Amino acid sequence: MNMRILMAGASGFLGTRLADRFTADGHQVTRLVRRPARTPDERQWNPSAAQLDPTVVAGAEAVVNLAGAGVGDKRWDDDYKRLIRSSRVDTTTTLAVAIAGLPAADRPTVLLNSSAVGWYGNTGDRVVEEDAPAGEGFLADVCRVWEAATRPAEDAGVRVVRLRTGLPLHRDGGLLKPQLLPFKLGIAGRLGSGRQWLPWISMVDWLDAAAFLLARENVAGAVNLVGPNPVTNAEFTRELARQLHRPAIIPIPALALKVALGGFAHEALTSTRVLPGVLNRAGFPWRHPDLAGALHAALTE
């Protein structure tokens, strides 16, 4: 069924691709933008001031929110940490409150709201699924308030799906892009000990999962968007090096990461061994269940 979708964060790394995917699937996508609207498919809003025309929301059958400042885009200082938090909580709150404020007949049927596997904090070698409690650390705290901000829509009877995204793989962004040049120059290696678990997912599976969850009316709550076979950073490094036909023999010490990345270094060294329990139980059809296939697709498609 084709739907009218209102989308925040449609210009980002994931949002651009998801908006294109929804359009290709026959949906009508309206993009929320902070600047004045320039095209018929754009509507202006100001989430930092909680400003959103309720008629814009009333015209949608689904709302998708992927807005948020990139966690790996800049060195973390106190100002950037505040931006990471506010850019997620303000947008989610504005949308959820707007949805809840509409008459029941005018409300969208579903809100797909971005979250992250940062919810779990450092799990070490312990395997976790969606029923695990929030962990400790900055990103876990952000995810806790981020997900709580969806509550007004949920309390109003709207199906809310919290997309706990891992590390989507694509050569143009995310985890993979900044690693390609060092690997090609032969000056790359594992991060720290390399024993930390990486919750990767192929880009096509991430897009498929979002489309799957949009349509699957019996799925709500937290959903881990990660591949079914997590690997350690050392395993990831070896496989990437193999596919690029380059060595990966120079480990990056934890201390060097802390100097280069500031607060984000702690998250880069965090072990998150997460499984997609909800997607697996719902029968989601994985296209790239293993890292080798996911990396090949990320590098060539």
Rank of each mutant, 00 (worst) to 15 (best):
I5K: 05
L6A: 05
L14S: 15
L14N: 13
R17T: 14
R17Q: 14
R17F: 12
L18P: 06
F22Q: 05
A24N: 10
T30W: 06
P36Q: 09
A37N: 05
R38E: 15
E42Q: 15
R43W: 13
Q44N: 13
W45F: 06
N46K: 15
V56N: 03
V56Y: 08
A62N: 00
A67S: 02
A69L: 04
A69H: 04
G72M: 13
K74G: 00
R75V: 02
K81N: 03
I84M: 12
T93N: 06
T94N: 11
A98R: 15
G101Q: 03
G101R: 01
G118D: 09
Y120T: 11
D125W: 11
E129Q: 14
V145D: 15
W146D: 08
E147K: 03
T150P: 09
V161M: 02
L167G: 04
R171G: 12
L175W: 02
L180R: 12
L180S: 13
G192M: 02
G192H: 00
S193P: 00
S193T: 02
R195E: 09
Q196S: 05
D208I: 11
L214A: 13
G221Q: 01
A222G: 15
P230D: 04
V231T: 09
N233Y: 11
E235W: 09
E235M: 00
A241C: 04
H245K: 15
A248M: 01
P251F: 12
I252N: 14
A254N: 07
A260K: 10
G262H: 08
R273M: 01
V278E: 00
L279K: 05
R281F: 11
A282N: 04
G283Y: 03
L291C: 00
L291N: 02
L295A: 09
L295P: 08
H296P: 09
